[in-house]
Design a protein around this nucleic acid. Structure first.
Length: 280
DNA sequence: ACACGATCCTGACTGC
DNA sequence: TGCAGTCAGGATCGTG
């Protein structure tokens, strides 16, 4: 489910709802996620402490106390964090429950992940966590993104779509927003990243920022199973131009949209108003 | 260094 | 209704 906008919406929801709460206890129902959970260290990082900071880096969520210790989570393809009353029934795929208190109030923050591609680990110091070490730049806050991408892509023959989805270059752009951004910038997803000119990256960068911001403002994309922190769906799916819309008319030129696999992932584009640049 | 395919896992959906 | 096959929003690892 989650690309940058979904994680950002989750972070904003959590900031409002759990900052200032104390972790009373952490309950593990399954520990065999992508990596086995370090249960003792996760408990030690949170239990008895006040949640002070909720942050995002790429698609990673960081929940930490005042001294910076806490947990880092990645939601994989199907993960989510849902806040519920202590008494509400649990999902079949709730693997971890953070029992939170504030005074006499109680809440449960559930880590849910049917496919178990997600990750959860103790966080000692944010700047040193191995999962964050190789991450590329943040697309929304990097002011020279076009120049950075243009420079990073020189000599690269990989398809621009895969280049954009490489989190070591730029974080947060997943399969949906890669297709959407490229279409908005009139670029064909198969074009070699190194073939694009600086002006192409300027157009692409504007499209990426605009689409990510719109998606955040709309509450994230509700494709299949995305839910916000209180369990409500996002609404951006209504605004997608190409993703999942094979054979429907291109909103720009009316050509029926195409679908294909690029790097093993479903890709949607318009063969009418985007062209692969000839390589030379 | 780079490009690419396989892989982790469950659920939803399609077609027979 | 049941069953097999296919596909899914991510990231890592091994291979060439």
């Amino acid at each position: 489910m989650p690309e940058l906008p979904e994680v950002e919406c989750l972070v904003r929801g959590l900031r409002q709802q759990v900052v200032g709460w104390h972790t009373q206890r952490v309950e593990f129902r399954r520990t065999d996620l992508r990596e086995p959970l370090a249960t003792a260290a996760i408990r030690a990082a949170l239990c008895g402490h006040r949640l002070e900071t909720i942050a995002r880096r790429g698609k990673y969520l960081l929940l930490s106390r005042r001294d910076g210790q806490g947990v880092i989570a990645h939601l994989g393809m199907t993960g989510n964090l849902i806040l519920s009353a202590q008494s509400e029934p649990l999902s079949k795929h709730t693997h971890v429950i953070f029992h939170l208190t504030r005074g006499r109030q109680q809440r449960a923050l559930q880590f849910i992940d049917p496919r178990r591609f997600g990750r959860l680990a103790p966080l000692v110091a944010q700047t040193q966590h191995p999962w964050l070490q190789a991450l590329g730049v943040e697309p929304l806050s990097h002011s020279g993104l076009a120049r950075y991408l243009w420079q990073a892509s020189r000599g690269r023959r990989v398809a621009i779509k895969n280049f954009l989805m490489n989190a070591n270059i730029v974080v947060g752009i997943g399969n949906i927003y890669a297709s959407e951004s490229l279409h908005a910038a009139c670029l064909h997803p198969c074009t070699a990243a190194g073939q694009l000119a600086y002006r192409d990256y300027q157009r692409l960068t504007r499209a990426i920022k605009k689409i990510l911001r719109q998606a955040i403002a709309a509450g994230g994309t509700s494709w299949r199973d995305y839910r916000d922190v209180s369990g409500k769906p996002g609404y951006f799916a209504l605004k997608l131009a190409v993703y999942g819309k094979q054979d429907q008319p291109c909103p720009r030129c009316q050509t029926p949209l195409s679908a294909s696999k690029i790097g093993g992932r479903s890709t949607f584009f318009c063969s009418g108003c985007t062209k692969i640049l000839p390589s030379h």
